[in-house]
Amino acid sequence: MICSKSDDIEKIVEILKNGGTSIVPTDTVYGFSGVVDLRDRKSFKTDDRIRKIKGREESKPLIQLIANPEDIYSYTDSPIPEKIMRLWPGALTVIVPVKINSPLKDYCPTVAFRCPGDEWLRRVIDGCGAPLYSTSVNRSGSPVLETFYEIRKEFETEVDILVDDGDKKGSLPSTLVMLEDKEIKVLRQGSVRID
Protein backbone atom coordinates (compact mmCIF):
# COMPACT_ATOMS: atom_id res chain seq x y z
CA MET A 1 0.00 0.00 0.00
CA ILE A 2 1.25 3.47 -0.89
CA CYS A 3 0.02 6.65 0.76
CA SER A 4 1.24 10.16 1.53
CA LYS A 5 1.66 12.16 4.74
CA SER A 6 -1.58 13.97 3.94
CA ASP A 7 -3.61 10.73 4.11
CA ASP A 8 -5.41 9.51 7.22
CA ILE A 9 -2.73 8.84 9.82
CA GLU A 10 -4.97 6.23 11.48
CA LYS A 11 -4.52 3.83 8.53
CA ILE A 12 -0.76 3.91 8.96
CA VAL A 13 -1.01 3.53 12.74
CA GLU A 14 -3.38 0.57 12.39
CA ILE A 15 -1.00 -1.28 10.05
CA LEU A 16 1.95 -0.67 12.39
CA LYS A 17 0.02 -1.61 15.56
CA ASN A 18 -0.87 -4.91 13.92
CA GLY A 19 2.78 -5.78 13.34
CA GLY A 20 3.19 -4.36 9.83
CA THR A 21 6.44 -3.04 8.43
CA SER A 22 6.67 0.29 6.68
CA ILE A 23 8.89 2.75 4.90
CA VAL A 24 8.29 6.23 6.28
CA PRO A 25 9.92 9.64 5.88
CA THR A 26 11.86 10.89 8.88
CA ASP A 27 13.62 14.15 9.64
CA THR A 28 16.70 12.74 7.90
CA VAL A 29 16.21 10.00 5.27
CA TYR A 30 13.47 7.45 4.64
CA GLY A 31 13.47 4.65 7.18
CA PHE A 32 12.19 1.10 7.54
CA SER A 33 9.89 1.10 10.56
CA GLY A 34 7.83 -1.22 12.71
CA VAL A 35 6.44 -1.13 16.24
CA VAL A 36 8.68 -2.22 19.10
CA ASP A 37 6.32 -4.72 20.71
CA LEU A 38 6.75 -4.02 24.42
CA ARG A 39 4.30 -6.75 25.47
CA ASP A 40 5.65 -9.79 23.68
CA ARG A 41 8.61 -9.46 21.34
CA LYS A 42 7.91 -12.88 19.85
CA SER A 43 4.49 -11.85 18.52
CA PHE A 44 5.48 -9.19 15.97
CA LYS A 45 9.19 -9.74 15.28
CA THR A 46 9.18 -6.54 13.22
CA ASP A 47 12.88 -6.08 13.90
CA ASP A 48 13.56 -9.50 12.40
CA ARG A 49 11.44 -8.67 9.35
CA ILE A 50 13.27 -5.38 8.81
CA ARG A 51 16.67 -7.09 9.13
CA LYS A 52 15.63 -9.72 6.60
CA ILE A 53 14.47 -7.11 4.09
CA LYS A 54 17.60 -5.03 4.56
CA GLY A 55 20.01 -7.97 4.82
CA ARG A 56 21.39 -6.60 8.09
CA GLU A 57 23.36 -8.69 10.57
CA GLU A 58 21.38 -9.77 13.59
CA SER A 59 23.76 -8.33 16.17
CA LYS A 60 23.51 -4.74 14.89
CA PRO A 61 20.70 -3.01 16.84
CA LEU A 62 18.06 -0.77 15.28
CA ILE A 63 17.34 2.80 16.40
CA GLN A 64 14.08 3.28 18.30
CA LEU A 65 12.04 6.41 17.67
CA ILE A 66 10.06 8.00 20.51
CA ALA A 67 7.22 10.53 20.33
CA ASN A 68 8.37 12.96 23.04
CA PRO A 69 11.81 13.76 24.53
CA GLU A 70 10.70 12.82 28.06
CA ASP A 71 9.61 9.35 26.85
CA ILE A 72 13.24 8.25 27.04
CA TYR A 73 12.87 8.06 30.83
CA SER A 74 10.40 5.20 30.40
CA TYR A 75 13.32 3.10 29.20
CA THR A 76 16.43 4.40 30.97
CA ASP A 77 17.43 5.62 34.42
CA SER A 78 20.45 7.46 33.04
CA PRO A 79 20.20 11.24 33.36
CA ILE A 80 20.27 12.89 29.94
CA PRO A 81 22.29 16.13 29.90
CA GLU A 82 20.19 19.25 29.30
CA LYS A 83 22.52 20.04 26.39
CA ILE A 84 21.23 16.89 24.67
CA MET A 85 17.57 17.20 25.68
CA ARG A 86 17.43 20.72 24.19
CA LEU A 87 18.31 19.25 20.77
CA TRP A 88 15.15 17.09 20.74
CA PRO A 89 12.95 16.81 18.80
CA GLY A 90 15.63 16.61 16.12
CA ALA A 91 18.04 14.46 14.17
CA LEU A 92 20.02 13.29 17.19
CA THR A 93 20.27 9.65 18.28
CA VAL A 94 21.34 8.91 21.87
CA ILE A 95 22.58 5.51 23.07
CA VAL A 96 21.73 4.84 26.71
CA PRO A 97 21.68 1.84 29.07
CA VAL A 98 18.21 0.34 29.46
CA LYS A 99 16.37 0.10 32.80
CA ILE A 100 16.75 -3.30 34.42
CA ASN A 101 12.97 -3.79 34.66
CA SER A 102 12.25 -2.45 31.15
CA PRO A 103 10.80 -4.83 28.54
CA LEU A 104 13.54 -3.54 26.25
CA LYS A 105 16.15 -5.25 28.46
CA ASP A 106 15.35 -8.45 26.53
CA TYR A 107 16.68 -6.80 23.37
CA CYS A 108 20.09 -5.60 24.54
CA PRO A 109 21.71 -3.69 27.44
CA THR A 110 21.79 -0.39 25.55
CA VAL A 111 19.35 1.13 23.06
CA ALA A 112 19.71 4.03 20.63
CA PHE A 113 16.76 6.44 20.89
CA ARG A 114 15.74 9.39 18.74
CA CYS A 115 12.88 11.84 19.11
CA PRO A 116 12.56 12.88 15.44
CA GLY A 117 12.03 16.47 14.37
CA ASP A 118 9.23 15.49 12.00
CA GLU A 119 5.93 16.28 13.77
CA TRP A 120 3.93 13.92 11.52
CA LEU A 121 6.20 11.02 12.46
CA ARG A 122 5.93 11.83 16.16
CA ARG A 123 2.12 11.67 15.81
CA VAL A 124 2.45 8.21 14.21
CA ILE A 125 4.68 7.02 17.06
CA ASP A 126 2.30 8.46 19.65
CA GLY A 127 -0.64 6.72 17.95
CA CYS A 128 1.19 3.40 18.11
CA GLY A 129 1.75 3.76 21.86
CA ALA A 130 5.28 2.36 21.61
CA PRO A 131 8.61 3.24 20.01
CA LEU A 132 9.16 2.51 16.32
CA TYR A 133 12.23 0.77 14.98
CA SER A 134 14.07 2.80 12.37
CA THR A 135 16.92 2.14 9.99
CA SER A 136 17.80 3.71 6.65
CA VAL A 137 16.20 2.38 3.46
CA ASN A 138 18.84 0.44 1.55
CA ARG A 139 20.22 -3.05 1.25
CA SER A 140 22.96 -3.54 3.82
CA GLY A 141 26.27 -2.37 2.36
CA SER A 142 24.59 -0.31 -0.39
CA PRO A 143 24.01 3.46 -0.47
CA VAL A 144 20.90 4.89 1.17
CA LEU A 145 18.11 5.37 -1.39
CA GLU A 146 17.23 9.05 -1.82
CA THR A 147 14.29 9.09 -4.24
CA PHE A 148 10.83 7.70 -3.66
CA TYR A 149 10.90 6.14 -7.13
CA GLU A 150 14.01 4.09 -6.24
CA ILE A 151 12.53 3.09 -2.90
CA ARG A 152 9.24 1.98 -4.43
CA LYS A 153 10.96 0.04 -7.20
CA GLU A 154 13.25 -1.78 -4.78
CA PHE A 155 11.00 -2.44 -1.76
CA GLU A 156 7.29 -2.03 -2.59
CA THR A 157 6.59 -5.76 -2.46
CA GLU A 158 8.56 -6.29 0.77
CA VAL A 159 6.78 -3.93 3.19
CA ASP A 160 3.14 -3.42 4.13
CA ILE A 161 3.01 0.34 3.56
CA LEU A 162 5.12 3.06 1.94
CA VAL A 163 4.56 6.73 2.80
CA ASP A 164 5.50 9.15 0.02
CA ASP A 165 7.01 12.48 1.08
CA GLY A 166 8.99 13.25 -2.06
CA ASP A 167 12.71 12.79 -2.51
CA LYS A 168 15.34 13.16 0.22
CA LYS A 169 18.43 13.95 -1.86
CA GLY A 170 21.51 15.00 0.07
CA SER A 171 19.95 14.43 3.50
CA LEU A 172 22.42 13.80 6.30
CA PRO A 173 21.90 10.98 8.82
CA SER A 174 21.22 11.72 12.46
CA THR A 175 24.09 12.57 14.76
CA LEU A 176 24.84 9.56 16.98
CA VAL A 177 26.10 9.95 20.53
CA MET A 178 26.68 7.63 23.47
CA LEU A 179 26.39 8.69 27.09
CA GLU A 180 29.18 7.20 29.22
CA ASP A 181 29.70 8.28 32.83
CA LYS A 182 28.02 11.63 32.15
CA GLU A 183 30.32 12.17 29.15
CA ILE A 184 28.90 12.71 25.66
CA LYS A 185 30.81 10.65 23.11
CA VAL A 186 30.08 11.50 19.46
CA LEU A 187 30.08 8.31 17.38
CA ARG A 188 28.77 9.88 14.15
CA GLN A 189 28.55 13.57 13.33
CA GLY A 190 25.37 14.09 11.31
CA SER A 191 23.01 16.98 10.72
CA VAL A 192 22.92 18.08 14.38
CA ARG A 193 26.21 19.61 15.49
CA ILE A 194 27.67 18.42 18.82
CA ASP A 195 30.81 20.23 20.00
Rank of each mutant, 00 (worst) to 15 (best):
S4V: 09
S6D: 14
D8V: 01
I9K: 09
I9W: 03
I12W: 02
V13N: 04
E14N: 13
N18H: 15
G20A: 07
P25L: 09
P25A: 09
D27V: 04
D27H: 05
D27C: 04
V29H: 00
V29M: 14
F32E: 04
V35W: 01
F44G: 00
F44I: 02
F44S: 11
K45F: 09
T46N: 13
R51S: 09
K52P: 05
K54C: 06
K54T: 06
K54P: 05
K60T: 12
E70A: 04
S74W: 03
D77F: 10
I80L: 11
I80K: 01
M85A: 02
R86V: 13
R86Y: 11
P89E: 01
P89V: 05
P89F: 11
I95P: 01
P97A: 07
N101G: 02
P103I: 04
Y107N: 09
Y107W: 04
V111H: 02
F113M: 06
F113K: 00
R114W: 09
R114I: 03
C115A: 07
P116C: 03
R123V: 03
I125E: 08
G127W: 05
G127Q: 03
P131F: 02
S134T: 15
V137I: 09
N138R: 11
L145M: 15
E146D: 14
E150S: 13
I151V: 13
I151Y: 01
F155K: 05
V159C: 01
D160T: 04
D165R: 10
K168I: 09
G170W: 12
S174F: 05
V177H: 08
E180C: 00
D181F: 06
L187T: 08
V192R: 04
R193E: 14
I194P: 04
